[in-house]
Amino acid sequence: MESGVKYVKNSFGPLRDFRDLADANRQVRAWVMAEAGTRIHGTTRQQLLTAV
């Protein structure tokens, strides 16, 4: 779990500005769908998000 938190902190947080909590939620959902969820897991070699 710790590496997942580090990934979000380094890949998402520093690159964004948020107007409010709703804006932050919209941005993180879009980021997960476009980037974080489509990457290949380092250990399992599986795509993290296959269908929603």
Rank of each mutant, 00 (worst) to 15 (best):
N25P: 00
A30M: 06
P14A: 12
D23I: 09
Q46M: 12
N10T: 11
V5M: 13
M33C: 06
L48I: 15
W31G: 02
V5P: 00
R16D: 02
G37S: 10
V5R: 12
R45N: 14
S11P: 00
V5Q: 07
T43Y: 06
S3D: 13
E35F: 08
D23C: 13
E35H: 11
E35V: 09
D23T: 04
S3Q: 10
A24M: 14
R19Q: 06
G37R: 04
G13Y: 15
K6S: 14
R29V: 08
G4L: 09
D20G: 04
A22Q: 13
S11G: 05
Q46P: 01
R45C: 03
N10P: 02
A30I: 03
A51L: 07
H41R: 05
V28I: 15
R39L: 07
H41W: 01
M33K: 07
E35P: 00
R16M: 10
G13A: 12
T44N: 02
G42D: 11
L48W: 13
E2I: 10
A22N: 12
G4N: 11
V32R: 04
R16I: 03
A34W: 01
A34I: 04
S11C: 12
N25C: 10
V52R: 03
G37N: 11
V52K: 03
A24I: 03
E2L: 13
V28F: 14
T43F: 11
W31H: 06
H41Y: 10
V8N: 05
L15F: 11
G4P: 00
P14S: 10
A22I: 05
M33W: 00
F12E: 07
H41T: 04
A36N: 09
A24F: 08
G13T: 13
N25Q: 15
T43N: 03
R19H: 05
A36F: 08
Q46S: 04
M33R: 11
V32W: 15
F18Q: 02
G37F: 00
E35S: 12
D23K: 05
V5K: 13
K6T: 11
F12L: 02
F18M: 08
A30Y: 03
Q27T: 03
K6D: 14
Q46H: 07
P14Q: 14
V28H: 02
D17N: 15
A24L: 14
A30K: 11
Q47I: 15
T43R: 14
R26I: 01
A24Q: 07
I40P: 02
D17K: 13
L21K: 13
V32G: 04
F12K: 10
A36H: 07
H41M: 07
T38H: 00
E2Y: 13
S3R: 14
M1D: 11
L49C: 05
S3M: 07
G13L: 14
T44F: 06
E2P: 01
K6M: 12
D23R: 05
A34N: 04
A30P: 00
V28K: 00
L48M: 10
R29H: 09
Q27N: 04
E2N: 07
L49R: 12
G4K: 07
A34Y: 03
V52C: 04
L49F: 12
I40V: 15
